[in-house]
Simulated assay, not measured.
Amino acid sequence: MAEVDWRVCDPARFDLLLIRTTWDYVDHEAEFLAFLDRAGRVAPVANDPAVVTWNLSKRYLQELAGKGLPVIPSLFVDEPTPASAAFEAFGAGEVILKPVVGGGGFGQSRLTRAQAEGVLIQPGQFAQPLVPEIMTAGEVSMIFVDGEFCHAVRKLPGGGDYRIHVIHGGGEHPYDPGPAEIEAAHAFVAALPVPALACRVDVIPTPVGLLLMELEAIEPHLFPTYGADLGGRMAQACGRLLA
Rank of each mutant, 00 (worst) to 15 (best):
A2L: 12
E3Y: 14
R7A: 12
A12R: 15
A12Q: 07
R13W: 01
D15S: 10
R20V: 15
T22I: 11
V26Q: 01
V26Y: 03
D37K: 09
V42I: 01
A43V: 11
V45N: 01
P49K: 12
P49W: 05
A50F: 06
V51G: 10
V51T: 11
V51P: 07
N55S: 02
Y60D: 08
Y60K: 08
Q62T: 13
E63A: 13
L64M: 04
K67A: 11
G68Q: 03
I72E: 03
P73W: 02
V77C: 10
V77S: 13
E79D: 13
T81Y: 03
T81S: 11
P82D: 00
A83Q: 01
A83F: 01
A85Q: 12
A86D: 02
E88D: 14
E88W: 02
E88K: 12
E88H: 06
F90D: 08
F90T: 12
G93L: 12
G93D: 15
G102V: 13
R110T: 14
R113A: 15
E117V: 14
V119R: 15
I121L: 15
Q125R: 13
Q125V: 14
Q125W: 11
P132L: 12
E133M: 04
E133R: 02
E133H: 08
T136E: 13
G138I: 13
E139G: 11
V140S: 07
F144N: 05
V145D: 07
V145M: 06
F149E: 11
F149W: 07
C150M: 10
H151K: 10
A152W: 04
V153M: 12
V153P: 15
L156M: 14
G159A: 05
G160F: 09
D161K: 13
D161R: 11
Y162F: 15
R163S: 10
Y175H: 15
D176M: 09
P177M: 09
A184N: 07
A187H: 04
L192Y: 03
P193M: 01
L197T: 07
V201E: 00
I204R: 06
P205A: 05
G209K: 06
L210S: 06
L210Y: 06
M213L: 13
E214P: 04
L222E: 00
L222D: 12
T225C: 04
G227P: 06
A228H: 05
G232V: 00
R233G: 00
M234L: 14
A235V: 11
C238D: 00
L242P: 07
L242F: 03
